[in-house]
Design a binder for these strands. Structure first.
Lengths: 223, 223
DNA sequence: CGAAAGGTTGAAAAGCGTCAAGTTGCGTGG
DNA sequence: CCACGCAACTTGACGCTTTTCAACCTTTCG
């Protein structure tokens, strides 16, 4: 999850030539689904997008939340491998793959930019592997909160309040756990005086360093 | 984990001009470590490479095993973010970043090839997120075995024997669990008549479909 | 105002990590 | 060639963690 967008003026102009802004009003609207023909790439302009995969068992794993500046819709052999739907009203630039490909062959620096974005998402995915492989659910929740407070759109530094755009179900599917476990995680964070729940979606972050210390502990702490 | 290498004759020739083959004899030899200055990219010619990250707590998470044809050493802001060491005697082509960058600007199709490789690794990382987020350790072990039997270098179809190049510790760090749990996983797979342990590193795969069915079950099966 | 969805909490049982005690396999040196 | 020692592996036991089922509370929205 990150939002950096470094394109030259010229590149931006060229991209805008082939991109169409699309608005998604309603929460849950599907942008594309896994298996579909991949005709477009999307660039997030505003909002939050959920990228996920539904496994054969019917359970959903959320791979990432995409924010303004992020790119989504990479195909594999011509089809999407993930699904994407909007978490809240959002605006995306929709770019036809065919045209983007043309543009990239003419403009290698654009392709390089594209590569940088994919490499970034790749590293982000690796961070998540570490999180899921090494941390217990309580630590993952802490990591999740620490990631989100990096984004001014959700975190108000003045009153230290974090406004989550997500339900407990979304968080659970992102953290690879059950919604109940997430709720219990918040309960414990509150008991340990690291956060305070204002509403189920608004959390006051009381002790950032405490959250950071949590992340680094062993999965099974001796205390 | 995959090994597909689609470069044109010309590209191969140009790459060979700047690449140096490096041999690593001994198991465990470090190719690069996280935090180091990223001066080279490596292409696996022969052997198996372990890509991992050591978290602040001192625990190691193996992100991927790289096989011939795979690329490693992507930098982030000029430094490696992962560590790489050899699992068994291996040969790598070492390519200086600076020269590769030059070559890519002159040869956009090479850059495109590079992009395809990174995109592939990215999708592979996403697969691992799903595995770690949704499956229990027993299922992950099954997934791991199913991945490995795709590679003829390790799996002898004639006698259905899989020769693992990895220790139980490596598998544990890859699967995000403890070596004991991996051993117990094998015990159970054997009890369920899905595999037979010949030695600790050689496994006869008895029931591939059974392993596949395992993957798809719920984390907590009712049977 | 009532229904539905989301959220919280409790309780029971399965899953898993950790410690500890073997066992096996292998290379080294006697 | 055997004995020894070491490292990897296996297995058991125990207790913390997490899932699951179920009940209840809260909020939202028609």
């Amino acid at each position: 999850m990150a939002a950096d967008n470094l394109l030259s003026q010229k590149q931006q102009a060229e991209l805008r030539g082939i991109a169409v802004a699309v608005e998604y009003e309603h929460e849950g609207t599907v942008i594309f689904s896994e298996g579909e023909d991949a005709r477009f790439v999307y660039l997030v302009a505003d909002g939050v997008i959920r990228i996920g995969r539904t496994s054969d068992g019917g359970r959903r794993q959320i791979l990432a939340f995409m924010l303004p500046g992020d790119l989504l819709g990479l195909p594999d052999a011509g089809s999407y491998v993930n699904s994407a739907d909007v978490v809240c009203p959002s605006v995306l630039y929709r770019i036809p793959w065919a045209k983007l490909r043309d543009l990239m062959t003419r403009e290698p620096s654009l392709q390089h930019n594209f590569l940088v974005k994919v490499a970034h998402d790749f590293r982000e995915a690796q961070r998540r592997i570490v999180m899921l492989g090494q941390q217990n659910t309580y630590q993952r929740l802490a990591s999740f909160l620490l990631d989100f407070i990096q984004h001014p759109a959700f975190f108000d530094k003045a009153d230290r309040c974090l406004t989550l755009p997500l339900s407990r179900f979304d968080m659970a599917d992102y953290l690879g756990t059950a919604p109940e476990t997430v709720a219990r995680g918040f309960l414990r964070l509150e008991r340990d005086a690291l956060v305070r729940r204002v509403t189920s979606r608004i959390v006051e972050i009381i002790d950032v360093d405490g959250l950071r210390r949590l992340q680094m502990r062993k999965r099974r702490a001796e205390t």
